[in-house]
């Protein structure tokens, strides 16, 4: 019993650290994005709030929390109020299956460096990412604003166009790792990261996952040039902040999952595993920011065309090819 309590405390500490680190990194990802975009655009970016503008995220958060929280007339209050929570919640939960190191031993017990090693880890990721669209669609619909509604619908449309290719692109990974567990998938990449075997799956996954995370060139649900602010048009203060947070946690999760599935997870020479994972996440995040600074936005139907007419067939064919090669050379 005592051991259980000790274990529980260790667990709590571990999970709190995980949550804290994810939130902290997500917050600072905003800073990284603003700085990096600024450098892409021959500017400095925030540099007044603290040295190098390092306190900028804190200023933003305090400001958002102390700002008035408005709910428009005719809005469906319940949905309006919880929608941002759905986005943030699903994004944070998704991170729970990302392993960040080998097991360590404390009190004679193995402490796994992952929040949860579900044997259906990958499916859990899909489930969460599908659920997150509820936040977008409900938030947009509930706010009783036309721009919000259009943004919400776009979010839903985007989900149904990319969820499939996202799932199908990972079938070859499952075939190679024989498991849905993220821990097993990292194990399977002991010798080579999967990106070397599965470049096509990698590409499909990257495109689909970017579409899922609603960033340029797929930021249609919020497309500020078209829909003002899309589904979060009516959100103010910290509720908007939660959407914001969700987006950046999503980037982190995307980086983590990409690292786990294709880049060997926490594996890497010399440095501790956690550091390697963070480096990989950071690189993926930088890539996403770079893309945002470079590309224009697709149109609604073009987005759907890309998903249905290019990515899904490609993913299916990729499965067939992987299967065939695996059977011929496998053993």
């Amino acid at each position: 019993m005592l051991l259980w309590i000790a274990g529980f405390i260790i667990l709590l500490i571990k999970l709190t650290i995980v949550l804290g680190v994810v939130l902290f990194l997500a917050g600072y990802l905003v800073w990284v994005e603003r700085k990096f975009l600024a450098r892409l655009q021959i500017r400095y970016g925030p540099n007044r709030a603290g040295p190098f503008g390092l306190l900028q995220p804190i200023a933003d958060i305090v400001k958002m929390i102390t700002k008035e929280d408005t709910v428009p007339d005719g809005a469906d209050r319940t949905f309006f109020l919880i929608a941002p929570a759905v986005v943030a919640l699903t994004a944070l939960l998704m991170f729970s299956v990302v392993p960040f190191g080998k097991d360590i031993t404390l009190l004679g017990q193995k402490v796994p460096l992952v929040v949860t090693d579900l044997n259906i880890g990958l499916l859990f990721v899909f489930a969460m990412s599908s659920l997150s669209v509820y936040g977008v669609a409900l938030g947009g619909w509930a706010s009783n604003s036309k721009y919000g509604l259009l943004g919400g619908i776009r979010g839903a449309a985007q989900m149904i166009s990319y969820e499939l290719s996202l799932g199908l692109s990972l079938v070859p990974i499952v075939m190679m790792a024989h498991s849905f567990s993220m821990v097993d998938i990292v194990q399977a990449q002991q010798r080579y990261p999967f990106i070397l075997f599965q470049p096509v799956a990698f590409l499909i996954f990257v495109v689909s996952a970017m579409a899922e995370s609603k960033r340029i060139p797929f930021d249609l649900p919020e497309a500020e040039n078209e829909l003002v602010a899309g589904y979060h048009t009516e959100y103010s203060g910290m509720r908007f902040g939660l959407f914001f947070l969700g987006e950046y946690v999503h980037i982190m999760v995307f980086g983590g999952i990409l690292a786990v599935l294709f880049l060997g997870g926490w594996r890497g020479p010399f440095l501790p595993p956690v550091v390697w994972l963070l480096i990989k996440i950071f690189l993926v995040a930088l890539f996403m920011i770079w893309v945002r600074g470079t590309l224009p936005r697709l149109r609604y139907d073009q987005l759907m065309t890309l998903g249905w007419k290019v990515l899904i067939p490609l993913a299916l064919i990729n499965i067939l090819v992987t299967g065939a090669i695996g059977l011929i050379f496998g053993g």
């Binding site: 667990l11 999970l15 729970s96 949860t116």
Partner: peptide, 19 residues
């Protein structure tokens, strides 16, 4: 219910924390 096993229990605790 093992706190040392990265299973559903751990996920539940994490979910509660996040919530």
């Amino acid at each position: 219910m093992s706190p040392f096993h990265a299973g559903v229990f751990s996920l539940v605790v994490f979910t509660i924390l996040v919530m």
